[in-house]
Write a protein that binds this DNA or RNA. Structure first.
Lengths: 227, 227
DNA sequence: GGAACGTTTCGGCCGGCGCCGAAACGTCGC
DNA sequence: GCGACGTTTCGGCGCCGGCCGAAACGTTCC
């Protein structure tokens, strides 16, 4: 009985245009300031502040105060997963206009899913890892011993990756309808690729673009030719 | 941008105590009448009617009119999956009182998840199917040729099970945090078990109880001893 | 036909919520 | 210290949405 109230409370957090826009923006995994979000959702800063306190209190977001700024981001990967689930269940509205259409194409090709890679790029990497027996999807979803070595060779710190959050996690992709690699390993690969200049963010969106260097690197590293 | 509005609209459907209670009740997979739901959520019939039209319009529910009754149920298994996802993300509130506690134990042991079996029973069946190589979880999630024969021997109609909805689908269990069998095959097993008198509903809840006949049947059929 | 029953529509009430602008607070840089 | 800036608090406004009871509609049962 009280379960219904809890569900209503959770849904209520997202049942507002402005708050929903905030959360979707935060799905890029970055920390935003209150002002940025206000501008993005086209509301007054004071309004944004009120919404943020609600989302904070609801446990969907966490904040980090730095000087006169207040950075806010999704509370944890589970929240991101929840949002991905929800957006996946939306009735797909056909894109209006060329701009949105090309943006959709870029997102489908490669994007970040909270803190790891998704889209065709994310799936391709996951497939390649599985094919080379670095990742094992047969029982559970985890790295093989050889896969762990591979991660280490890429510069991963085995200790840093051993947290409460699972190393590898299957994350469902709503454009590909396939699973791709999440977890701390997925996050590591995403930041590593970015640091190496293999991928670059497209504008301020969640879409990313594979650089020429990234293309050759992916080919030599995992045998991925093109998307 | 409009994506935020869509998400808000979807969440808004569940952002009401009464509507959330309706949806959670409908998670048992059965069709309820408007009056039953009104009584269950403790609101006037007229209020329930208004909520139902909203949920209908929102695509979460479908209705079937029969005489002077209006039966309503979840629109499709995807909606059920969405609701399961959401409830799984709720902060688990400790049960208050002995009644709720025992109810929780029964639910954890065996329950229906929309139209198939979940809880320890559901997971045990899925594990047994996998172990006997009737179900294959290695790539994708599907029945092996031998598994299809097994289903047929249980009385499944191969034609009836071949619909747009997948035969086997991995469904995440929020008490066990493991996957169990959904899809048309999962639904078939659930109704078959019920028809055979192997399981019986506990009161009007989603919890089910394994009958003595069911216990011996599960042992001979899949080697499952006890939960 | 008439009574009982499930359902729906309508009006009206009430509370809550999102929004803004103004003002206050804190921090940073000069 | 002072101004600029990001953020928050507070009133106040307006509207939307949930709730009910009364009445109407349709079906079923007798």
């Amino acid at each position: 009985m009280t379960q219904g109230e809890d569900l209503a409370r959770l849904a209520g957090l997202l049942a507002d245009r402005t708050r929903a826009t905030f959360c979707l923006a935060l799905l890029d995994g970055r920390a935003w300031t209150a002002n940025e979000l206000a501008a993005h959702a086209d509301v007054a800063p004071s309004t944004a502040s009120e919404h943020l306190t609600k989302l904070l209190a609801g446990g969907l977001l966490v904040d980090r105060r730095q000087g006169r700024h207040r950075y806010v981001q999704l509370a944890d990967p589970e929240v991101a997963q929840l949002l991905e689930d929800l957006t996946g269940h939306l009735t797909p509205t056909p894109p209006r206009g060329l701009k949105q259409a090309t943006a959709g194409v870029a997102m489908a090709r490669a994007r970040t899913c909270y803190d790891h890679l998704a889209g065709r790029l994310g799936v391709a990497i996951t497939d390649a890892l599985t094919e080379r027996e670095l990742l094992d999807q047969r029982d559970g979803f985890g790295f093989t011993p050889r896969g762990l070595v591979w991660l280490k060779e890429l510069g991963a710190d085995p200790v840093a990756l051993r947290t409460k959050r699972p190393l590898a996690k299957a994350c469902l992709d709503w454009t590909e309808r396939r699973t791709h690699l999440g977890g701390t390993a997925g996050a590591f690969l995403c930041t590593r690729f970015q640091d190496n200049g293999w991928i670059r963010r497209v504008g301020t969106s969640r879409a990313v673009r594979l650089t020429p260097e990234g293309e050759t690197a992916l080919h030599s590293l995992l045998g991925i030719r093109s998307l």
